[in-house]
Amino acid sequence: MARVVVITSGKGGVGKTTTAAAIATGLAMRGHKTAVIDFDVGLRNLDLIMGCERRVVYDFVNVINGDANLRQALIKDKRADNLFILPASQTRDKDALTTEGVEKVLTELAEEFEYIVCDSPAGIERGALMAAYFADEAIVVTNPEVSSVRDSDRMLGILSSKTRKAEQGEGAIPARLLLTRYSPARVDKGEMLSVEDVQEILSIDLLGVIPESQAVLNASNSGVPVVHEDGSEAGQAYLDAVARFLGEDRPHRFLVNEKKGFFGRLFGG
């Protein structure tokens, strides 16, 4: 039975697509057959982050409209076996995502894949609602700042009522928090909300904390999901999050400001 996971946030620019790419890649690296879908129709990005933008022929909307079949549209990832990408259409808008169409595609994917990761667009409009509607669970990506937390809170409210499961009376789908761009040093200076602050406001389980890292930016620019950079803290934090997602118990790392000693400062790090 495939599990549909939506990566969502409300606010834009907090790291949804980076997270969708990292989580999907991480799941595939752990041996689970995974598809990742870009729901950001009109502003596609996932293919860039996944480094497959030059191999896009057909897209999600083509499949919904029956212009292409799923097999033609799915792009096999070059680095991770078990990973396939369904890119968004650049030329259409989000109205092209019909409930029936999305359901049809997800049902078909479910026959073949263990995990279906849905990369939601920002906002709370149609694209975001469609990405969440069929989800079995949600990962809410939040930055440690007030507006992002508030938007995530809003999104959690929507998730509790606007999914198929909720409409069928099965209640809210499980949602977990992934805090990205976390900088313990800035938390110490009071420039950023702490993990505890964010958790206190959102009151949901913590899936992971991804430290602010140049590696994430480099990864996006080069089209290689950051989990492949296993020397980077961000890459490790994402792999931890994937392990927790799969039910493993891992302590949270990178939460405190590691004060560099004299030699540390001298030799950088």
């Binding site: 809170d153 809003r154 409210g157 509790s160 809210a172 009151s203």
Partner: peptide, 8 residues
């Protein structure tokens, strides 16, 4: 029984 979220 649930938290009342922003917008609700």
């Amino acid at each position: 029984e649930q938290p009342v979220r922003s917008g609700q």
